[in-house]
Nucleic acid binder design. Structure first.
Length: 256
DNA sequence: ATGGTAGACGCTCTA
């Protein structure tokens, strides 16, 4: 089983890249973030022609998440369903038999102390609560993929001092993220690449990609029994090259 | 403190 996660930065402007990616890798599941479109204009036909079903939680201009799959999901749910008023499409859950897959797009946070920063902190608390309430069986097959907008530690940053106390690396977000992991999830990329210094995002500006001045912001997290069956995890850097790349490269993991 | 780039939308916001 092959799983991928990719912040595509607009699914419509990245459609040809995405279908080529699907053809090249033949993943079973792909979690997408930053669709930047409503469900009614999501390119279902092209994705279906590429051999995939799509569970979509869309939003105009911003955010938007999806789960693409070879087999159609048995059940789909959007958002935390926690009665908090929230118009941002940042989480979708899909069930395939007893396996559950979640695509997440954690808020960026803009600037420390800003309204968006406080929204990010609150969102992470809601995510933690959501996981505790909805996934009490820590041994059931669960996969959470997405752009967390969080680097865990120095191994996830090319230039750690540059990111100290920014919205992408700050104790107030690293702490809850580590707490979520301790709740029974494994960062399978880290497990397979303990030496770190491999990134999934590079700013479009200042030649960040050619200088490999990146961060690892995109994660594949799984429950422990699934993680034990992970055979490989890697970043497809080629997708950050060439014409019109997303600023994120896909992260992939394979399971026996 | 600013600006560098990209995408969607509509002359600005978000990342």
């Amino acid at each position: 089983m092959k799983i991928a996660t990719w912040n595509v930065n607009s699914v419509r402007s990245r459609l040809e890249r995405l279908t080529n990616f699907l053809f090249r890798h033949q993943p079973d599941i792909v979690c997408l973030q930053e669709l930047k479109c409503l469900e009614e204009v999501f390119p279902y036909n092209e994705i279906r022609a590429a051999g995939y079903f799509a569970a979509v939680h869309g939003q105009k201009t911003y955010n938007g998440v999806a789960v693409l799959s070879r087999e159609e999901a048995d059940e789909i749910r959007c958002g935390f369903e926690d009665n908090v008023e929230d118009s941002e499409a940042r989480l979708i859950w899909a069930r395939f038999g007893n396996m559950q897959v979640i695509s997440v797009y954690v808020p960026n946070g803009s600037e420390i102390g800003s309204d968006k920063w406080h929204y990010k902190l609150a969102w992470l608390e809601r995510l933690q609560k959501y996981l505790i309430i909805n996934f009490p069986d820590k041994d059931s097959p669960l996969i959470i993929c997405g752009d967390t907008n969080i680097a865990r530690d120095q191994l996830d940053m090319a230039d750690p001092p540059a990111w100290e106390n920014t919205v992408l690396y700050h104790p107030d977000i690293v702490r809850p993220f580590e707490s979520i992991l301790k709740g029974g999830l494994v960062d399978v990329f880290r497990e397979k690449n303990p030496e770190g210094k491999i990134y999934s995002w590079w700013d479009y500006r200042q030649l960040a990609f050619p200088r490999n001045d990146g961060l690892r912001l995109d994660y594949i997290l799984t429950s422990r029994p699934l993680a034990a069956r992970c055979t490989a995890a890697y970043v497809d850097r080629d997708e950050r090259k060439g014409e019109k790349p997303s600023d994120h490269a896909p992260v992939l993991a394979e399971f026996d």
